[in-house]
Nucleic acid binder design. Structure first.
Length: 138
DNA sequence: GCCAACGTTGGC
DNA sequence: GCCAACGTTGGC
């Protein structure tokens, strides 16, 4: 299984909205970045990801699961852009902030820390494990 | 609100 | 195909 990180501005699309979609999930639309798109095209059903709130909170607030493979983004009429569907799995007990990641030696190599602009990014298994521990989720 | 970093675009 | 200019993103 692979691990990912989905980044969103809470004003645009927040964790609460994601949770409200329940089991059906929702397409992760609006991505207009090739790297992010390529990452989504690599995802498999059941892959898990962190849900990160950028700008104001700058912290990981929940765990999501990929529930549909990459498909055309319905908000895009050029046909160039694809996205996956994700559903909320659970909220974290303790949000893990960007600061926490920077402070942690093993997390300081994360893409989140070094390329904060990429909105869909891979997370290594080690990073996943560490963050889960910090977040208090199993 | 500012500024640095990155990605994309377009002229050559 | 290179590179400068511009726009956008996101941390501070």
């Amino acid at each position: 299984m692979a691990y990912w990180l989905f980044k969103s501005e809470p004003n645009t699309w927040g964790w609460d909205q994601q949770v409200a979609k329940g089991e059906a999930g929702e397409q992760w639309d609006g991505v207009r970045n090739y790297q992010a798109r390529n990452n989504m095209q690599k995802m498999a059903l059941g892959d898990r990801g962190f849900f990160y709130h950028s700008i104001k909170e700058k912290r990981i607030v929940g765990i999501v699961e990929v529930c549909a493979l990459a498909h055309p983004d319905s908000t895009d009429d050029t046909g160039k852009w694809h996205c996956v569907d994700i559903k909320a799995v659970k909220a974290v007990k303790t949000p893990v902030t960007l600061e926490d990641c920077k402070a942690h030696p093993e997390l300081s190599k994360m893409i989140l820390v070094n390329n904060s602009r990429l909105s869909v990014q891979p997370v290594s298994e080690d990073e996943w494990t560490i963050i889960c521990q910090l977040a208090g989720v199993s």
